[in-house]
Design a protein around this nucleic acid. Structure first.
Lengths: 335, 335
DNA sequence: CTGAAAGCGCTTACAG
DNA sequence: CTGAAAGCGCTTACAG
């Protein structure tokens, strides 16, 4: 951290202690090849001069940039996905732990977007990609796999024959934890506020609710299910439908925090907050900001990011399904 | 976009049409130096071979990486700042328009974080930095300016003698638009739900409310102001304080969307939604997701990002203050 | 264990 | 307007 912007070069470090450039390079890349005394001298010189290998030079020589490409998803107004924010942070930290960095880019969805990936590759600006928010029919996994480009996806593509490595969170298991939690509190009629059919993540969570409810001998009849958009409004109106039914549930399991927030709002308006339990999913900032605090399911984003980096280096594992964690707050407790 | 991962080199393009490497390089970097016919031939070859200059090679030679460093802020749980998400997207797009990319990194706040900046610079991994969410006493602007590192900040540092270029949104002007809007709808007693004193942004917005209210002859007495955290809860309890006062306001101006949401929730609970106007600030996804839609002030993030990129290349401008835009929705309309 | 050499793919003065 | 040359800073076989 000397003031010089230019920065020392490997050559200068070598000259400083009278060894060859090769020796300094070895100290960095193959320390076992050096005599311990020499290694120590070199390391001291590196420290003293604040030397750091030039990324471009190293990249040119090794044919790798040390960069991992990540497409930033444009946010639709009105859609709440604070989760990807946290994931990006976790991914960034995981990359840094391996002396790599995230290169951000934007690209259209679908086939048109592929030229951006091709361009980044042609420039050798990135070594690999991390895919997030893959959709059904996403062309990217196949396209990258064909070209032998290392990549890993956060989220299964839910299509047949998925190409490439993925890491995902076991939404069904998360929902099962929620249902068991509510059951243990005495709830015997549990409604589900879901997304519209066709979303892999949403359908997986619904499966989890249904499977565990059935396993506990609870009803999963159609009248207990309302589906809609991933908005606060949809949660509010969905909750109204369930609570106005002939045999209303005593607990509302929402597919996401946004939907759960709508249900909480409705209960607050009706002044029946105390009677009906509500749960969300994702443990977004919203979950702990609201009153009562929202019981939710936390995605293990740090572990997801770690696994993704692992898969990038080791393409022999095809996928990992990680278990999320139930976070209990006041919204699920009967009062 | 031929299938070859290796990618063509400048040399191969040159050989393909029998010119020297220099000619191809000129076609890219100084096209005016070439005969139009030659230029066309080279461009055709570049297109045909899908040639893109190798970033590492170019970076090594030009001593610039084409990368702009951006520190990802770790999110505290319970704090809603969807805005930075959108800013990052705008920044990424603006960088791409200039054939540059964003390199993400994490770093601790304060002086300890500076070594991360030093490291990135020593590796020549980035050419410049974009600073966001600068805080009072932030060491980064001074540190970077001292070293002659190009940078620009989103947000004034609010301290004396700010180093380096900045772009910011005129929060006071945004608030003035809000107050004038409410005044034109007939409101004569307008409360303010703010953040605690000491936050540059929050204080600026309060100034805007006060200044325009006074200009319109409205009261700005202390009893019309409640300050607290940037949470939904704080908005809820703050709204309760104002509405329970002896002379309650007919409109609540919140310093942020999160705070406004709390106010809306309280009104919904009390069943008086129709009587009291509420406004937010930032026009976050929350603003349009809620019912009634939240009148808010939209930060011109695309223009902020454009200006920041401009300042990076032209350090002769010290700052730009951009005007935000009022977005009127149902929450501010008397019914 | 250490040192001299080649070369990654580009850009940019410099001659012609 | 075009071409041969040097060199950016590194890594990695290859001799010694």
């Amino acid at each position: 951290m000397t003031g010089n912007r230019a920065g020392a070069t490997l050559e200068q470090v070598a000259a400083h202690i009278g060894v060859s450039r090769q020796t300094v390079s070895n100290a960095l890349n193959a320390p076992h090849k050096l005599h311990p005394d020499t290694l120590e001298r070199v390391q001291a010189a590196i420290e003293e001069l604040g030397y750091r290998p030039n990324r471009s030079a190293r990249g040119l020589r090794t044919r790798s940039s040390g960069m991992i490409g990540y497409r930033l998803t444009p946010r639709d107004r009105g859609v709440l996905t604070p989760l990807m924010d946290d994931f990006l942070h976790a991914l960034c930290a995981a990359a840094e732990a391996r002396d790599r960095h995230i290169l951000l880019f934007t690209a259209p969805l679908g086939d048109e977007g592929l030229s951006v990936y091709a361009d980044l590759l042609a420039q050798r600006a990135v070594d690999a990609f991390v895919l997030a928010e893959t959709v059904v029919g996403d062309p990217r996994p196949g396209w990258l796999a064909e070209r032998g480009v290392p990549f890993a996806a956060f989220g299964r593509t839910w299509g047949p024959g998925q190409a490439g490595a993925w890491v995902d969170v076991d939404g069904a298991h998360g929902m099962a934890q929620v249902v068991e939690h509510l059951h243990s509190l005495g709830h015997r009629r549990i409604g589900f506020l879901g997304w519209r059919e066709g979303d892999g993540v949403g359908d997986d969570r619904l499966r989890g609710w249904r499977g565990s409810a059935e396993g506990l001998g609870l009803s999963t009849e159609d009248g207990l299910i309302v589906r809609g958009a991933n908005t606060i409004d949809a949660g509010r109106s969905g909750a109204a439908v369930l609570l106005n039914s002939a045999e209303p549930p005593t607990a509302l399991v929402a597919v996401s925090d946004a939907v759960a927030l709508g249900a909480l709002a409705l209960l607050a308006e009706r002044g029946v907050s105390g009677g009906v339990a509500v749960t969300g999913f994702d443990d977004s900032p919203l979950a702990s900001a609201t009153l009562p605090g929202l019981t939710s399911v936390r995605q293990p984003l740090e572990r997801v990011a770690e696994h993704i980096l692992l898969l990038l280096d080791n393409q022999s594992v095809s996928g990992s399904l990680l278990r999320p964690e139930l976070v209990v707050r006041a919204s699920s407790e009967r009062r």
